[in-house]
Amino acid sequence: MRAQYNIRGGCCTDCLTHFFCENCGLTQQYRELKHRGFDMSLGWTGNAEKQNQGGVAMVVPTIMT
């Protein structure tokens, strides 16, 4: 998320936050996405469609199996 939205911070602190307090890390990500206008009730696909309708291309990551 930091790279996608050009948010300052470090990989090490992010890793430590998610390792020691996963709920804290997920809450931070949730609040950041909500602040940027994402509607969590729509899910990933719904938000991608919403962003694409506004003329903004949303990068959808490829799932590796």
Rank of each mutant, 00 (worst) to 15 (best):
V56Q: 15
P61T: 05
Q29W: 09
T13R: 09
G46F: 02
Y30Q: 07
H35I: 05
V59L: 10
R31A: 07
P61I: 00
M58W: 04
Y30K: 10
Q4M: 05
N52G: 08
V56Y: 03
L33P: 00
E22K: 13
K50H: 02
T17R: 11
D14C: 14
C11T: 08
T17D: 02
E49C: 14
C21T: 06
Q4S: 05
A57Y: 08
A3P: 00
N23D: 10
V59S: 07
N47I: 00
L42D: 07
L16K: 14
R2I: 10
G10V: 03
D39P: 01
Y5R: 05
C15F: 11
T17W: 01
G25P: 03
N23A: 14
C15M: 08
F38I: 06
L26K: 09
G46R: 02
G37F: 04
R2S: 10
R8M: 13
T45N: 08
R2M: 15
F19H: 13
C11S: 09
M40W: 02
H35Q: 14
V60G: 01
T65I: 07
Q28W: 03
K34G: 02
E32L: 11
D39E: 15
G55L: 01
L16Y: 12
T45I: 09
F20M: 09
F20L: 13
C11E: 07
G37D: 00
T27L: 13
A48Y: 00
H18C: 00
K34F: 03
L33D: 01
N47K: 04
K34Y: 09
A48V: 15
T17G: 01
V60Y: 03
N47M: 02
C12K: 14
A3D: 14
C24E: 10
G54W: 01
M1F: 07
Q53G: 10
Q28N: 09
G37K: 03
C12L: 12
L16M: 14
C15R: 08
L26N: 07
E49V: 14
M64H: 10
R8D: 12
L33I: 00
